[in-house]
C-alpha cells in the first residue's frame, strides 16, 4: 500500500504510519498504515486475533507501540519523535490531553458502577475540562435525550439493560466533545434484540459527520455506516476500500474466504 502523503490529505485526522507492536514474541501489528480523514468512518474487520483491538487501543495509547508512529491532528500519540528519530515518552499530562479529544467505547461498556447515569456523563467534563456543574448537567441531559435515555439519568448503571448501558457509554464519550471516537465491538456483548438500538445511535453519529474508527463483526452494519473498510489479517491491513468495493469485489483470497465463512455462518 502506498504511504499516504500528509500534505496531500490536509483533512486527515489520524495518521497511522507503519506501526508495529509485539506482545513478547507475538508480533501483533506488522507495519500497519492507515489514515482517517476528518468526518470519515473507517471500519476494521478481520478474523479473531488479527490485531483490531490492539490497533484501536494504540490509537489512544491504552497500548504502547514499538515502531512507526500514530498521530492525531498532527501530534504523535504517546511519544515524541526527535529530529534524530529518538522516541521519548510524552508526560502523562500530554497523553491525557490527547485522550480527552479521543473518545472510546468498549465492548463491555465499562460504565462507572458507583455513579449515576448522569454522573457518569458529567464526571470527566467537570474534572478534566473544568466545566461548571450546571453546564455539565445540562449538556449531559441533552445527550441522554439524544440516545433516548433521559428518564434514566438518576439510575445506576446496574439497573439498565446492556443496550441502554452501551448507549449511556456512547453519551459519556460524547460529553467530552471528542474529535474522534474509537468503537471496539460495541454490540458483541449484547443480546441480538438490543443490537439495533446501539447501532442506530452510531449511525446517527456518522450522519452528523463524527470521525470514527469502528471494529465490528456486523458486516451489514459495516457496509452501511463506513466510508472505507479495512480488512485485517495476521496483524496487517490486507485490503482497504470503499464498502461497495471491499464487499462487492474482494481481491485477496484471505478476504474472500473470510467473507465466505461469515456468510456461511449467517445463512439460515
Amino acid at each position: 500500500m502506498p504511504e499516504p502523503l500528509p500534505e496531500l490529505l490536509p483533512e486527515s485526522l489520524v495518521v497511522i504510519d507503519r506501526v508495529g507492536k509485539s506482545f513478547g514474541a507475538n508480533r501483533v501489528l506488522k507495519e500497519v498504515s492507515l489514515t482517517v480523514g476528518k468526518g470519515e468512518v473507517v471500519t476494521l474487520i478481520g478474523p479473531s486475533g488479527c490485531g483490531k483491538t490492539t490497533l484501536l487501543r494504540c490509537v489512544n495509547f491504552l497500548e504502547t507501540y514499538d515502531s512507526g508512529a500514530i498521530s492525531i491532528e498532527g501530534e504523535t500519540v504517546g511519544i515524541r519523535i526527535g529530529a534524530d528519530g529518538r522516541r521519548t515518552a510524552r508526560p502523562d499530562r500530554e497523553v491525557a490531553a490527547m485522550r480527552a479529544r479521543v473518545g472510546m467505547v468498549f465492548q463491555s461498556y465499562n460504565l462507572f458502577p458507583h455513579l449515576t447515569v448522569l454522573d457518569n456523563l458529567t464526571v470527566a467534563p467537570i474534572k478534566v475540562r473544568g466545566l461548571p456543574l450546571r453546564q455539565a448537567r445540562e449538556k449531559a441531559m441533552a445527550l441522554l435525550e439524544r440516545v433516548g435515555l433521559s428518564e434514566k439519568a438518576a439510575q445506576y448503571p446496574a439497573a439498565l439493560s446492556g443496550g441502554q448501558q452501551q448507549r449511556v457509554a456512547i453519551a459519556r464519550t460524547l460529553a467530552m466533545e471528542p474529535h474522534l471516537i474509537l468503537l471496539d465491538e460495541v454490540t458483541s456483548a449484547l443480546d441480538p434484540e438490543l443490537v439495533g438500538e446501539v447501532l442506530d445511535v452510531v449511525q446517527s453519529l456518522a450522519a452528523d459527520g463524527m470521525t470514527m474508527m469502528i471494529v465490528t463483526h456486523e458486516m451489514q452494519f459495516a457496509r452501511e455506516v463506513s466510508s472505507r473498510v479495512a480488512f485485517m489479517a495476521a496483524g496487517e491491513i490486507v485490503e482497504l476500500a470503499s464498502p461497495a468495493d471491499l464487499f462487492g469485489s474482494p481481491k485477496s483470497d484471505r478476504l474472500r474466504s473470510f467473507l465466505g465463512r461469515y456468510q456461511a455462518a449467517h445463512r439460515i
Partner: peptide, 28 residues
C-alpha cells in the same frame, strides 16, 4: 482494570482515575 481504562480514555490523569474512579469502588 477496564474501569481505569475507561477513566483514562476520558482524558483523566492516572492519579485522578485512581482517586475518583477506582478508590471509591475499592473502599466500598
Amino acid at each position: 482494570r477496564t474501569q481505569t481504562e475507561a477513566a483514562l480514555s476520558l482524558g483523566m490523569m492516572p492519579r485522578r482515575a485512581l482517586f475518583d474512579i477506582v478508590l471509591p469502588q475499592a473502599l466500598r
